[in-house]
Design a protein around this nucleic acid. Sequence first.
DNA 1: CGGTGTGAAAACTTTCACAGCA
DNA 2: TGCTGTGAAAGTTTTCACACCG
Lengths: 231, 231
Amino acid sequence: MGEILSANRIEGVVRKDVPERVISRLPIYLQTVETIAATGQDTVSSEDLAARSGVSPSILRKDLSQLGRSGTRGVGYSCPELAATLRTFLGLDRDRRVAIIGAGRLGSALADYAGFRRRGLRLTAVFDIDEEKIGTSIGALTVSSLDDLPAWSEDIDLVVMAVPAAAAPAAAQKAVEAGVRGILNFSPTVLDAPDTVRVHQVDLASELQVLAYYSALDTAPLNPGFEEHRN
Amino acid sequence: MGEILSANRIEGVVRKDVPERVISRLPIYLQTVETIAATGQDTVSSEDLAARSGVSPSILRKDLSQLGRSGTRGVGYSCPELAATLRTFLGLDRDRRVAIIGAGRLGSALADYAGFRRRGLRLTAVFDIDEEKIGTSIGALTVSSLDDLPAWSEDIDLVVMAVPAAAAPAAAQKAVEAGVRGILNFSPTVLDAPDTVRVHQVDLASELQVLAYYSALDTAPLNPGFEEHRN
DNA sequence: CGGTGTGAAAACTTTCACAGCA
DNA sequence: TGCTGTGAAAGTTTTCACACCG
């Protein structure tokens, strides 16, 4: 499940194996540095960039140092240079092509997200199995039949799954067969896929349940007078 | 940012401080064990439950052992008992009240999610600032003005932010002032909030960018003939 | 001078392997 | 016997603190 691939070969250059934890923070840095660059500020310190990204300055410096030296001592990081480095490293210099499976409310909402292009992603197709939806428009796209997915396999790198839990495994199977390299799964189901396909899970209820746990901490006990059970 | 609270007092019982990593896996176990229970299977081994939850058996056993002994040696875990333990531990035995801020496409789609009740969550309100949307219905709820949020403060534990990035900080501020305990933020902005409020970020583009990175690994090098640089 | 880059230490997480119990 | 619960080992991530350089 979600094994880390170890070859790490991009454009022929073999890189130090960068941990997934680090990779998952890079998009945040990218977004933050773009926001800062948009204000006209040309350089930024690790302290400032870290604060705005919600991480510690030392972790930010460690993370960025793994992409090669990218800052200037005594000055900070050049916003445009850093943004370019991050985009290249993440493979966003050439647009990644994304398809959404599921043209219901959630799928349509995600398809609507205006930031795709700006963030190096291109929405190329939307699929559904519902005859009612096939042929309708979502933004500039027309909903295709999921059965036609194989025909698109050359034009899809990543898939967003926005279908009911029951439909997810079969749809994922089709995506895998079509050769997609990653699946972002909004259905509340653990999907299994071969090691060549990365699956990330986003589950509304699970996230809220974690928050629910923390929301119950530190509140007045409902049942005072009870005491510590230890084994 | 997102400091771990340390008091950990639930219903008067002081617990071992359970790491966030562990907490974030519990909802998955809960969902998996409920699915298994629904098939009529009464007990489950750590090996089986782990495989279906996408984790290793040892990590599953370690995680569950932190909730107190919950299995039976030689047998496995009782599905109904384990589900009850997890629900209680996560604080889901009494429904957590959730509000959605943002009645656009995404907010409506999330409000529509059928699993709330079953998963210990109750959607109590939907807010927006757009006069056009206020007063319209989403499912059984009527969209309220965000300005009325303070009046609801007693009825909201958690908030889901589904507004454009530009509107997120102000909306989060209102939620914090109303005393919510957690925010699940779908806007692509890092929100800062006091330590008493936990903020989790879910960003479509960031998730896809991480997948994009991995999708570029192990593909045929664009620039073959280059060889391994090792330090 | 000021802020990055980085070893070394500390903290945390996962895996291993097996004791112990139903 | 079979599978949980758990110490101890291995591995990973974060923090610290400071050398180094523009």
